[in-house]
């Protein structure tokens, strides 16, 4: 087993799963009910009969009392689809690749809990487009497949949120929860991509990861900064005041993402990679956006 998902990691996510079961017992079942009406067993609603309706669904008891024909509508039981959209662009791998590893671990942990809850879990790594997909899987036993997929090396590229999310929506028939794990370093922005998801009835959940070293880089003197994705070069004489300004600009960038999510009622989590991922998972549980 690779170092990314070792025994300790497995134990940790198993524990997280147990915690999720205990803390949220009663509100979660072994499977989820979708909002879709269909051929289930439980009655969800009634409507007047129209010709052509299945006569087996007429509520004859109601007819006996009122002489009105009502058709029983059943809740269709359907599995929840959870899509983990993991940013694997170059910016996620710069330096020692801490953000990339963090994103993979986080998606694996949440994915395990999804699998254990008998949800359909799918992984979609992306950069400027989706770079493959792990087809929706269900059941705890699929975790090894998930691990293997996450461990696969993908060719990194530049980030293009809009293009990647549009392509994802276009190739995904089933709607569901879209967990987006990224640093949101996209010069073209992320607004359109997220809106596109929302408009197509996906429930986005945003996790913005960053590295503390990115926030406070250990730079001084004359340096040439090279963008890892665009290869753009910036000649800078780093001074304490310049560093302070950079730190503020970085914080502003993250705040803008958070503000947008809040306005659009999208669950938003921000985490440095130095924070243990299990803390973040618990926070996700508490916020209630992931477990329903």
């Amino acid at each position: 087993m690779a170092a990314l998902f070792d025994e300790a990691f497995l134990k940790k996510i198993e524990l997280l799963y147990l915690v999720s079961k205990k803390v949220f017992a009663g509100s979660n079942q072994a499977f989820r009910r979708s909002k879709k009406l269909g051929a289930g067993l439980d009655v969800a609603d009634f409507r007047p009969y129209v010709p052509g309706d299945d006569l087996r669904h007429i509520d004859w008891n109601y007819y006996a009392g009122t002489r009105e024909l009502l058709i029983r509508l059943f809740e269709e039981e359907e599995d929840l689809h959870i899509y983990f959209l993991v940013d694997v662009s170059k910016s996620m791998r710069v330096g020692n690749g801490a953000k990339f590893d963090y994103a993979r671990r986080l998606s694996a942990a949440l994915g395990y809990i999804g699998l254990a809850n008998l949800d359909r879990v799918s992984i979609v790594p992306f950069a400027d487009k989706p770079l493959g997909v792990l087809p929706p899987s269900r059941g705890r036993s699929q975790i090894w497949k998930l691990f293997r997929f996450l461990e696969q090396e993908t060719a990194p590229g530049p980030t293009d949120f809009d293009a990647a999310l549009r392509a994802f929506v276009g190739q995904t028939r089933r709607r569901g929860l879209a967990v987006i794990i990224s640093d949101f370093y996209d010069p073209a922005g992320y607004v359109e991509g997220l809106n596109y998801l929302r408009y197509h009835r996906f429930d986005p959940l945003v996790v913005q990861v960053f590295d503390e070293d990115e926030l406070s880089p250990r730079l001084h003197g004359d340096v040439e900064l090279v963008d890892c994705e665009t290869d753009a070069r910036v000649l800078v004489t780093v001074t304490p005041s310049l560093l302070a300004q950079y730190r503020q600009a970085h914080t502003d960038l993250m705040n803008r993402v958070e503000d947008f999510c809040r306005q659009k009622n999208v669950l938003y989590f921000r985490t440095p990679v130095q924070r243990p991922f299990d803390e973040l998972v618990l926070q996700v549980f508490r916020m209630g956006g992931f477990l329903r």
Partner: peptide, 9 residues
């Protein structure tokens, strides 16, 4: 100058 790679220029 020292060349340093940054994630977001």
């Amino acid at each position: 100058r020292r060349r340093i790679e940054v994630p977001y220029s």
